[in-house]
Write a protein that binds this DNA or RNA. Structure first.
Length: 586
RNA sequence: GGUCCCGUAGCUCAGCUGGAUAGAGCAGCGGACUUCUAAUCCGCAGGUCGCAGGUUCGAAUCCUGCCGGGAUCGCCA
């Protein structure tokens, strides 16, 4: 149950009654009523600005309208009082019975509490990571990976049918570079002294095993071939090996994609899907041969005027039209990506979401244009941009250079820091804000670390339930039993504050899912943890407020219901973020 | 030069798509451990929401223009 929607429905009902009674103009359209928890608890449990929103349309003064709505609302049992404040706010105090019902609902619904039907089963394709298969993943990939994965969980939790997809860029020039690098490692594996890696090739040790595989499977036969003969063979083997590596890296972060879509597959088996996609656009009159203006502001010696095949992306808000064919006659990366998205659309997805790194931000308008053009605007398309992660150690920036091969790999990060802190910290920031990630701070299992703070709240709740079993061996502390406890005993202000916060979980999930912003969950969980810890602290100062009240099994049962409900919400929330919820942290 | 993102407490950041007196953590100062696990809690202090206009009952939030920081700018991917 979602208290916010519940109150919104009641207000909506009140407005309709007012229209029937002709106290409110019947011909005005009623907007969706938004309710919110006021910042100041003195303003009640729920607040609505509906009177101010409608005042102009209704031709009435906000406070007069608010008064009419308030009268209709108070007949409802779940509403205790309605005050009118300021310019026309409805400040609503809920009956305690509703908080008792929410607590019971959390316990009875368990992991289902907060699930929503927002998506109504809509087919969502969520593409994330899509790192080039040219080496192991480094920390730069990490944020988008975690973000995409958590967003996928969040969308599933809110009723979407989500496919987690990885676009494998196994067709471009970088795969040739990979293959040439692997070929050198192959010769090395055969005993040849290759010296140091030539400039422009990948120097990392991770290609040595690939060289060995090539030596084992092909012996010396590759050495006797010309480059155009061995290149396709080595490309295939090397890129497959790199994808195996990447899959292991992702698994270390508990990330598992449903689909790995190969770029090169689109032009294989005598069927050129890229050509098909371009033809589809051509039929819409969006393809032409022309010249692009030279970009201003930076000198480019290599620039030459050239007629080329262009996509009219400016029709859809892009700055310039975009090239589809390179000067060597092959497709541009963009052409392939158009075809890939055309493919997604043809597979029946109605919602496409891409997670980009900040370095691809300039790619956003043309991709948006392409999807609009291909779908005639019928696809819900969103690109989430993850800003860069800056690594620090003891406050000092960690310098990385891919060319020198000294970049920090994702695996090293996970092994040093642990999955949970990595995942949580990557989400403990808005995706489009830059993120500073300090090894030493995140490794430190201290108060400075929000992950442990939240996890500790969960462990603490679990601990209370264990201890209760010792204090009252006969008590049934299963969620279903606790849901039946006399919850009217929950009357302390701290207890009520906690319940009210927990009751906001379903609404928070809705908002985060709509906005595609999983970080909201991380901040919410921090707040839930804080509120639980705070109530614990009150028990330290005032023993009669402790969760386990040895003098009264009844009071204890009601408080355990609250503790168990808190544990459940934290567990569900952390589950969406892909972070463990430990029973104990001793 | 074009486009996009960011600018909120000393530092790191939230701010629920326009609401009421702008919040949290860290750092600083002062308190609470024979504990329902102190990985915690309580208190104090800290602000021209980059600047200037505009939109309206109401702006950190939306629009415009500046200032500062970052990303990116045919044929790489």
């Amino acid at each position: 149950m979602n208290v916010y929607e519940h109150v919104g429905d009641m207000i909506h009902g009140a407005l309709k009654v007012l229209q029937q009674e002709q106290k409110l103009a019947a011909d005005i359209e009623l907007p969706k009523v938004e309710t919110e928890a006021p910042r100041d608890p003195a303003h009640g449990d729920m607040a609505s600005n509906i009177a101010m929103v409608l005042a102009k349309r209704a031709g009435q003064k906000p406070r007069d309208l608010a008064q009419l709505v308030a009268e209709k609302l108070t007949v409802n049992d779940d509403i205790q009082t309605v005050d009118i404040a300021g310019p026309g706010f409805l400040n609503i105090k809920m009956s305690n019975s509703i908080w008792e019902r929410v607590t019971a609902a959390i316990l009875n619904q368990g992991p289902q509490f907060g699930r929503a039907q927002l998506g109504e089963g809509a087919k969502v394709n969520l593409e994330y990571v899509s790192a080039n298969p040219t080496g192991p993943m480094h920390v730069g990939h990490c944020r988008g990976a975690v973000f995409g994965d958590a967003l996928a969980n969040l969308l599933e939790f809110s009723g979407h049918d989500v496919a987690r997809e990885y676009y494998v860029n196994d067709a471009g020039g970088q795969i040739d570079v990979l293959a040439k690098s692997a070929y050198l490692r192959y010769r090395e594996a055969l005993g040849e002294d290759i010296g140091s890696m030539p400039e422009g090739l990948y120097p990392g040790d991770y290609l040595k095993p690939v060289g060995q595989i090539l030596a084992d499977s092909h012996g010396k036969s590759l050495k006797e071939m010309d480059e155009d003969q061995w290149l396709p063979i080595v490309r295939e083997i090397a890129s497959n090996a790199m994808m195996d590596l990447i899959r292991e890296d992702l698994a270390a972060l508990n990330i598992h994609h449903d689909v790995f879509f190969s770029e090169s597959s689109m032009t294989q088996n005598g069927h050129d899907q890229i050509k098909d996609a371009i033809e589809a656009l051509r039929k819409k009159g969006l393809i032409y041969e022309g010249q692009l203006p030279k970009p201003k502001g930076h000198e480019d010696e290599e620039w030459e005027e050239r007629e080329q095949t262009l996509f009219r992306s400016t029709d859809f808000g892009d700055d310039v039209d975009r090239a589809l064919m390179k000067s060597d006659g092959t497709y541009t990366y963009f052409a392939g990506d158009i075809a890939y998205h055309y493919n997604k659309i043809k597979r029946g997805y109605t919602h496409l979401i891409n997670v980009f790194g900040a370095d691809h931000i300039g790619y956003l308008p043309r991709m948006t244009a392409a999807v609009k053009a291909l779908s005639d605007g019928n696809i819900d398309f969103d690109i989430k941009v993850c800003q860069l992660v800056k690594l620090y150690r003891d406050g000092e920036p960690v310098r990385m250079s891919k060319r020198a091969g000294n970049f920090v790999t994702l695996r090293e990060l996970v092994e040093e820091v642990g999955v949970d802190p990595v995942r949580f910290m990557m989400l403990y920031r808005k995706n489009d804000a830059p993120l500073d990630f300090d090894f030493s701070k995140v490794t430190e299992q201290s108060k400075d670390n929000p992950v442990f703070y939240v996890q500790y709240a969960h462990a603490r709740a679990a601990s209370v339930l264990r201890n209760a079993k010792e204090a009252f061996p006969d008590m049934d502390i299963s969620p279903s039993a606790l849901a039946k406890a006399d919850l009217t005993q929950l009357s302390d202000q701290g207890e009520l504050a906690l319940i009210k916060l927990l009751s906001g979980f379903p609404n928070l999930v809705l908002g985060a899912a709509r906005a595609h912003e999983p970080h909201r969950l991380a901040f919410y969980l921090y707040e839930v943890a804080s509120t639980l810890h705070k109530q614990w602290g009150r028990g330290n100062d005032s023993p009669h407020l402790r969760f386990i009240h040895t003098d009264s099994q009844g009071v204890t049962a009601s408080r355990l219901a609250l503790v168990a409900a808190t544990q459940q919400v934290i567990s569900s929330g952390l589950g969406i973020l892909g972070v463990q919820a430990p029973e104990s942290m001793r």
